[in-house]
Structure formats: C-alpha cells, structure tokens
Design a protein around this nucleic acid. Structure first.
Lengths: 218, 218
DNA sequence: TAGATTGTTAATCGATTAACAATC
DNA sequence: TAGATTGTTAATCGATTAACAATC
C-alpha cells in the first residue's frame, strides 16, 4: 500500500464519482471492467482513470482490467468510508434536517449523534431519532462525546463564532454551508469543506446567460 | 465589451467568490481596491485576479485599482444576476424547502414561481407564498409559464424521467441535486449544474482520514 | 510629474492525454 | 502462447504565476 501523500485535489475530487459509478456497476452485477469501458460510461479518458487510480497503487490486472467490488472497496477505504465518523449538525432548519434525514450518509459511515439549534421552539423535537438540543448545550456535549465532524447549516453571521467554539473544543473537520470561507479564518489543521450553494447557482446562471453550442459545466 | 467566449470553467467558478467578497467590501463601505489588497483578502494571487477579470475586459484603472461597486455590478452582469430567472423546484422535501426559503436567491434575481411534489399530503401547502402543486400538473404549468431553470431535489431513481419531461417541455437549465450525472443523459444544449452533496462529504472524509500538515480543500 | 497599479505578455508549473513496455 | 489491458513514462496541453511596459 503506497503512502497517499501529495495527491492533487483534482484527483481526490474525482474519487467519489468513481465510487458512485462502481457502486452502480455492482448493483448491475458487473464483475469486472476495463479502464476503457469505464471511460465510455463516465465520459473521462481511460488514461485519466488509470493515472488517478495509480496514485494509490495498482488495483487492476493486465489483460483483465479491474475487479469492480475490489476497486469499489479500495476507493471506499481511501475515502475513509470504511470508518465510522461521528457527526453533529449545527442548525436544524430545512437544510440541516435535509442532511440529517439523508439515509445514505448512515450507510457510508457518517453517524449523526447530535443536532443543535438556537431556536427554543425546536427543543425536544426529534430528527431521525436524534433529539434537537440547544446550542448552549454544545460545549458540554463536545466534552462528553467523540465528534469527528460538524456540519454547519446556520446563517453566515453566526458561523464564525460557532466554528471557533467547535475548534476550541477539539472538532477537527467542518462541513460548512454558510457563506463564509471558514478555511481562511480557522487554524490550518482544521479541515473545512465549503459548500456554497449560491455560487453553484450563479455558475448555472452564467452558463444559461452565455449559452453556447457545447456547454461545459463549471 | 468583449465577447465572453471560450473562457475556462476554472475562471467562471471563481467569479461568484469575487462577487461575494466585493459585496462584503460594499457593506464595509470600501470604495476602491487593488488586486493586491483583494489578493490578501481572498488568498489568491493578484496575478490571478487580474488575469481572471481581463477575460471579460478591463474593469480597473492603472494607478488606482478597481472601483468596488462598478466591479461588483459588472461581475453580477457577467453572471447573469442582472436578469430575472424564473425557477421551479421539483421535490418539496427538506432540501427543496431549504432552497425555496433561501431569501437571498430572490434578491439575486432567482424567482421561484412553482414548487412540485408527488406527495398528495403536501398538496395545497405553501412555501414562501408559493403553493406546492402535484407533479402531474407540471406539464400544463410549463406550457403556461416561462420557466428558465428547474431545481431537482428528488431521489435519483425518478430524476432522469422528470428531467426528460422538463426538457421535452422546453426547460433549458437544471440545477440537479440527485445523484446522477444528468448532463450525460440530456441533450447537449441543456445546461446542467450538478450538486452532489455526498461527494463533497466524501472529500471531507478523505481529508480527515489523511490529515496532513497543511490541508488543501478538494 | 512621480508613484501606483493595471493590462498583458512571457515563463513556469501542473494536470491531462498519448504511447508503449510490462505482464497477466 | 497470443491477446488484452494495465502501470508508467513521455508529450502535450492548459492554467497559474511572474514580470514589466503601458498608463492613469
């Protein structure tokens, strides 16, 4: 097993897509696939597939291709999906509840162990058997539970303060839906994945406004 | 005004972020800014900022920098935010409602004119003054309204069928939250922006699992 | 005018694609 | 063994950064 360092983020960003297609191939009872066949399916070059995978070691076999189940599980392992991640959600609005209700996360090892909000009206309500707690209870909660990642579905203006508090209490990974680049304001060793939905919508708007012959997504 | 063709998607993807920072500068009453100051703020090189902007023409002035309000409005125009886009949402679950409730979209010209679902229990319910309609009413609706974009917050297995129906009725842009690459199955002239939240979460998981000295987001 | 900063060209860097020897 | 297909090196392409002349 190679040491997986210095791998470009472009490669990492493609792994989940490989993983998804391989999962579908398993559902379709496909046992093996060549880089060329996968290339046809996913509309990327076979060269890129082989290069990407070889960043992590040789998962294929000359003359045969790749065993679908094996490659699927290896990519899952690389992505850390073989481990259980305890997750909390801060912000129990529609977006927070949408994420909490997404059954598949649980299957991938993302276990929601707490949901927090500031709205007293939500107190005691339950989302997928997890009770909504008040944000004020969060510091205590963090001291008594192992929390691997926190999802922030709260407004921009409170995001930084909450993030600082999370970090002060040892949280090392944040899935951030607030419109602020938390990675720029938090310590470097805290991992931040920003999801800026409005920026995605603006890309769509750009492409619609400048509609060309052949459209490339952005 | 230059013709805005052949601009790389990397550049386009950065525009919304410039737009966001410029909006904050306006809020902070900043009137002008140099590429160097903006570079400090956003943690990108000044060179990249100038290169990016010059794809669309010269918005700055030598010896002065950029006028914040002017640059903001120009980027807004480039992104198509000066126009009103009529949007419908298919899927009135938590995610659909989260998007429908996001006030800022309205401010940016994205007007939600319809919300659709298959769940009869939701019939007649209202989200931000828009009545939830049954999916079966959608074809008629499309014939009678100008719909610029459709947001798909429905499960993967029905996404393709619904997308085909939308396209058959003239919809040219889809904001897709279902776990399927609709761009690969729809006609090339239909613009698709895929948002795959689970893939974003997997990137976070990867970075957490392989936490290194200095983390680059993916 | 002098100083500042853009617009733009040139240099560098990194990512993608092509090619093919290795090997199952 | 022969055919197929990977793993990997080399070539190409595109994106980022550096440099500086133009100019406000």
């Amino acid at each position: 097993m190679l040491d997986e360092k210095g791998i470009s983020k472009a490669v990492i960003a493609r792994l989940p897509r490989y993983y998804r297609y391989l999962g579908e191939l398993i559902d379709n009872k496909v046992e093996r696939i060549s880089s060329n066949e996968l290339s046809d399916l996913m509309k990327v070059t076979a060269s890129q597939i082989r290069q990407d995978l070889n960043n992590f070691g040789g998962f294929g076999q000359q003359g045969y291709g790749y065993n679908v189940r094996y490659l699927y599980s290896e990519i899952g392992r690389i992505l850390g999906l073989d481990q259980t991640h305890n997750m909390i959600i801060i912000g129990a609005g529609h977006l927070g509840q949408a994420l909490a209700n997404y059954v598949k996360f649980e299957k991938r090892g993302f276990r929601i162990i707490g949901i927090f909000d500031i709205d007293p009206n939500l107190k005691g309500h339950t989302v997928r058997e997890v009770k909504i707690q008040m944000l004020s209870e969060l510091p205590d909660f963090l001291k008594n539970h192992k929390v691997d990642m926190a999802t922030l579905t709260i407004p921009k203006n409170s995001a930084r303060e909450v993030a600082d508090m999370l970090v002060a209490n040892g949280v090392k990974a944040i899935w951030n839906f607030a419109h602020i680049d938390l990675n720029l304001v938090l310590p470097k060793d805290v991992i931040v994945e920003n999801v800026h939905l409005s920026e995605s919508l603006m890309c769509l708007s750009y492409n619609l406004t400048h509609a060309r012959r052949e459209h490339k997504d952005c």
